[in-house]
């Protein structure tokens, strides 16, 4: 399922216009993006939570050439499945 299919399903199931559904899906994912960009945690009960994990710099290797490459410190979102989602997916 992609974003357009999600918008279209929301339009039908919530009985709202396509423009409204599109706006709501945008707000939902943009809010999460903005929170993570500010290093805030995100917690959507039943679905998932995210927090930003800090990774220090390290010496990596190019797997093709074996060449050593320095990897700069980076931040990545860490996903944790919510209780309800976890149980429903693994029924």
């Amino acid at each position: 399922m992609n974003k357009l299919e999600l918008i279209s399903a929301l339009k039908t199931e919530a009985d709202i216009s396509k423009a409204e559904a599109a706006k709501i899906v945008e707000i939902f994912f943009n809010s999460m993006t903005d929170a993570l960009a500010d290093e805030d945690r995100v917690e959507i009960r039943g679905l998932c939570s995210f927090y930003v994990k800090q990774y220090k710099s390290y010496i990596g290797r190019n797997p093709k050439t074996g060449e050593k490459v320095p990897i700069k410190p980076k931040q990545l979102p860490f996903f944790k499945s919510g209780k309800e989602l976890k149980e429903r997916v693994n029924h």
């Binding site: 199931e13 709501i24 679905l47 029924h91």
Partner: peptide, 27 residues
């Protein structure tokens, strides 16, 4: 709040049916 719950339910149902959910620009 109802609409947000509906949205969450659509996502959870898709995943429950083993369907991946791809949100371009997010993940």
């Amino acid at each position: 709040a109802e609409i947000v719950e509906t949205l969450l339910e659509i996502i959870k149902s898709a995943l429950e049916a083993k369907e991946d959910v791809l949100i371009s620009g997010f993940g």
